[in-house]
Design a protein around this nucleic acid. Structure first.
Length: 852
RNA sequence: GGGGACUUGGCGGAACCGGUAGACGCAAGCGACUUAAAAUCGCUCGGAGCAAUCCGUCCGGGUUCGAGUCCCGGAGUCCCCACCA
């Protein structure tokens, strides 16, 4: 029998789908819609196994939903702006635009080879003028709504990439791409007012039921909403210049106000600057603070350092009580008010500080069961529950009540009010890069910063950028930036900063609903397709991309351009594709294809193919070039076909977990493909439908209906590996009931089984499914054939095998008809000789029957 | 320091509501076919034991007729955030 030949069948069916335009997304109000989207790829140049898994996952959903009668939108595009193109330009002297479009062309053809059910007519790249021109319009819309502003601020400067980074892009004090230690710089910057939406972005997380809990928690922590009190300390003497209304601080523990023993301000605080101007020692201390690094190790070991300014403030509830104002290295200027009051007894950081500088430690929260006369705090702050004491009008209250009472009193006094503070900062969106979306504003000597009118859009990037040296090639282009001011008509210069590429990916999903529309979003199309029903991508975007996309969606909804307030109704975060790592004794990494695995019983060793030298087998890690543990998808497609590769990345592990690529694993998938094909080939074509049933036919028929039910549920719940296990089981059953020597009844049952089977495997192995569908006499193509239905009555077994436990231990099993009553089951059990033996000498006290 | 997840054979994993632990796949062993190998097919495959049977889901307790699953305590691994007032 001829083996299945994917090289022949797979291209044939891809062409058939394209010719039939089978995957075009159509607005059809008579059908429910389903929008499935995988995070679009950066066109790095080559497809890797992670892509294969990501897009295969989405394609299972898309094909399944299409078969289930949904009108499906499953588009593809390119997240195409960004630094790698500029780096390539610098290193190899290529043009970033040409480099990017070359990569896109190559990756497009590789992706198409995967046989994905994508509507390619909607494809775009974010570096297409047609896309980023619309993004400029969108920028102006947000500008008009007051959601974009420019201010001078301290920014994170990446000295290697020579650009600004958002807070989210600084990891452990280093740039997320370059890994360089980030510097603080003062620059004029463009910001999106994401903090306006901080409350909504937190509250609406609750509505995202089909998001992983983990991602919601991460976003909630990132936004970092905290409720507390802002209030001002009056100065004991004359108020310093600019502080007539006092020194403002923020706290989440107003209940501990009577435990205050100092006030601490950040080194960058204006009051600290004033102190520095008068006192060189203060200036020296501030300089010292600036040197402190932001990395994990530095924070862990950093000593709490302070400098007493000599300034005193009055306690808000007792003006006779004065507190010293210290400059402290642990106070952050950009959180809360940049100043705090220290309550050492109930805050670990404060007590470290107080013990070092000999400041008072007054407990005001009495832990349950402690005696107020003897309770004291050592070097460890008490942060647990208790009753307030030593606190005048707050005495006797619990912590929560005391917080409310303190806030109420402060509001009465007019010295402060309850406040919500966020960790989230506004999103700095300007990048000093040339390969990005130009910001559509000009700078005019007379009119200042002037947004361009929409008629002046798009602002196109010049093609003749020169990338020989670091820095912004757009800024040094000889002519591009020179233009006229739309307000006065005089000479002006264009903004040379471009938008963060995360802006590009914050609305592309909406653009897919009509990628050719004359304004950024076609509301009618978006109203039909949005929100994305199932979004699929890596967990690494849990905060950055997914938070920005949520913000932009809300802003566009408020602007009337979208009706939905959340972009992604369902989110699935898939695991990575990993592979074992191999190293020579010298420590060099070795590629899998240069390694031969030797198996001895349960132990595995590895040696070099070329000379048999011993190789160390390391843990499975994410495929990466640096560790040489990559497997090129094309090579796998070439040997086993696309279907086997798709099938393997889906079959081995649950999709949310990492899956380990192995040669043996893909061989298993290849065997499956061949066994499926053999089963279809062995079935005589046009098997007549015979009336009547025999035992084998009944078993096959029941198993078929059960299989349909199980595979349907498995796909619905993202348990693809379990669904595939059921497919294997069913194939084993068919093999046990072969077409050769089959009764007419069994042949008929097999025919029905194979017809269903061809459609059930279509989401996983679409090319093979088409070939099988033809073989079994199906009409049209499997891709559009519709999902098989099951008869619930046939999914239930008529006879149940029930385990029998005696005293909680399994002691045998009996068979009972489905739905048998408790009394009937009890009778069968008691009549069973094996059970009777087990009951000898025992008294039956209680019988528990669990139905079926 | 704060938050979250995970831990089941040699391996990936299954077990949906507390009801037969280890489905399915991989690896391995034995056999068939073959001059031989590959491919393919059949059987075995958590541990101990001839067997009856006993033990077994990270460890220790608990709830329950019954716990991989629920509760309490602990260990390990991984992820996110972090001088956040």
């Amino acid at each position: 029998m001829a083996r299945y030949n994917p090289k022949e069948t797979e291209p044939k069916w891809r062409k058939a789908w394209a010719d039939a335009d089978a995957f075009r997304a159509v607005i059809d109000p008579s059908k429910p819609k389903y929008y499935v989207l995988e995070m679009f790829p950066y066109p790095s140049g080559r497809l890797h196994m992670g892509h294969v898994r990501n897009y295969a996952l989405g394609d299972v959903i898309a094909r399944f939903k299409r078969a289930r009668g949904f009108s499906v939108l499953h588009p593809m595009g390119w997240d195409a702006f960004g630094l790698p193109a500029e780096n390539a330009a610098m290193e190899r002297g290529v043009n970033p635009k040409a480099w990017t479009y070359d990569n896109i062309a190559r990756m497009r053809s590789e992706l198409k080879e995967l046989g994905l059910s994508i509507d390619w007519s909607r494809e775009f790249a974010t570096c297409d003028l047609a896309y980023y021109g619309q993004q400029q319009a969108l920028f102006l819309d947000l500008y008009a709504r007051g959601l974009v502003y420019r201010r001078e601020g301290m920014v994170n400067w990446d000295p290697v990439d020579q650009t600004v980074l958002a807070n989210e892009q600084v990891v452990d004090g280093r740039g997320w791409r370059s890994g360089a230690v980030v510097e603080k710089r003062k620059l004029n910057q463009w910001f999106f007012r994401i903090t306006d939406y901080a409350d909504q972005l937190t509250d609406d997380l609750e509505t995202l039921e089909r998001w992983p809990e983990k991602v919601r928690v991460m976003q909630e922590n990132w936004i970092g909403r905290s409720k507390g009190l802002t209030f001002s300390f009056a100065f004991a003497g004359e108020a310093p210049a600019g502080f007539d209304s006092g020194l403002e601080v923020y706290t989440t523990r107003p209940d501990t106000l009577f435990g205050a023993s100092f006030v601490a301000i950040a080194a960058d605080h204006p009051l600290a600057q004033q102190a520095a101007a008068k006192d060189p020692k203060a200036a020296a201390f501030i300089e010292e603070c600036r040197k402190g690094g932001a990395s994990q190790a530095e924070i862990d070991t950093a000593e709490k350092l302070g400098f007493d300014t000599g300034i005193k403030v009055k306690h808000p509830f007792d003006p006779s009580w004065e507190l010293p104002v210290w400059i402290a290295n642990f106070v952050l200027m950009d959180y809360g008010a940049g100043a705090l009051f220290g309550c050492p007894a109930h805050d670990q950081r404060d007590i470290d500080f107080a013990r070092k500088y000999g400041l008072p430690v007054v407990p005001v929260v009495l832990p349950p069961g402690e005696d107020p006369k003897t309770f004291s705090v050592g070097d460890e702050a008490y942060t647990g529950p208790g009753v307030i004491y030593h606190s005048q009008f707050l005495d006797g209250l619990d912590i929560e009540t005391a917080k409310a009472a303190a806030i109420a009193r402060m509001e009465e006094l007019g010295q402060g009010e309850g406040a919500t503070v966020f960790r989230l900062r506004d999103w700095g969106v300007a990048r000093q890069r040339a390969w990005g979306c130009p910001i559509p504003v000009v700078h005019c000597d007379k009119d200042g910063v002037v947004p361009l009118p929409k008629a002046a859009l798009p602002v196109a990037l010049p093609d003749d950028l020169e990338f020989g040296k670091p820095g912004n090639a757009l800024a040094r282009h000889p002519t591009w930036k020179h233009t006229t001011c739309p307000a006065c008509g005089g000479p002006a210069t264009r903004e040379v900063d471009t938008l963060d590429t995360f802006v590009d990916s914050s609305w592309y999903f909406a653009r897919f609903t009509n990628p050719d529309f004359a304004t950024p979003i076609d509301k009618a199309a978006a109203d039909y397709w949005m929100p994305v029903d199932q979004y699929i991508g890596g967990i690494e975007h849990a905060v950055l991309h997914l938070l920005y996309a949520r913000f932009v969606t809300k802003a566009l909804a408020d602007d009337g351009q979208l009706s939905v307030r959340e972009p992604f109704a369902g989110l699935f975060t898939q695991g990575m594709v990993t592979h074992e790592t191999y190293r020579r004794q010298s420590g060099e990494w070795v590629e899998p294809k240069d390694v031969e695995i030797v198996v001895e019983g349960n132990s595995r060793r590895a040696k070099l193919v070329e000379n048999g030298a011993e190789v160390t087998i390391g843990d499975a890690e994410k495929m990466s070039k640096s560790k040489k543990n990559t497997v090129a998808p094309e090579e796998i497609f070439d040997v086993y076909g696309v279907d086997a590769a798709r099938f393997f990345v889906l079959s081995d592990s649950p999709p949310e977990r990492d899956t380990q690529w192995s040669q043996a694993g893909v061989l298993g998938a290849w065997r499956f493909v061949n066994r499926v094909w053999e089963e279809f080939e062995s079935q005589p074509p046009g098997a007549a439908s015979a009336a009547g049933d025999d035992e084998a036919a009944t078993a096959v028929r029941r198993a078929t209906h059960k299989l349909i039910k199980q595979v349907t549920e498995a796909i619905d719940t993202f348990r693809f590996n379990s669904g595939i296990a059921r497919l294997y089981e069913f194939l084993n059953l068919l093999k046990a009931n072969p077409a050769a020597d089959a009764s007419p009844a069994l042949l008929t049952a097999r025919q029905e089984a194979l017809s269903a089977f061809a459609r059930l495997i279509a989401p996983f192995t679409p090319h093979l499914a088409e070939e099988c569908w033809v073989r079994v006499g199906g009409q049209g193509m499997a891709a559009v054939a519709g999902w098989p239905a099951f008869d619930p009555a046939l999914t239930e077994d008529a006879v149940r095998v029930l385990p029998v436990q005696v005293n909680g231990k399994r002691r045998g099993e009996i068979s009972a008809p489905a739905g048998a009553s408790a009394a009937d089951v009890e009778k069968i059990v008691l009549d069973d000789p094996e059970i009777a033996r087990r009951l000898e000498g025992l008294t039956i006290r209680k019988v528990i029957v669990v139905p079926d």
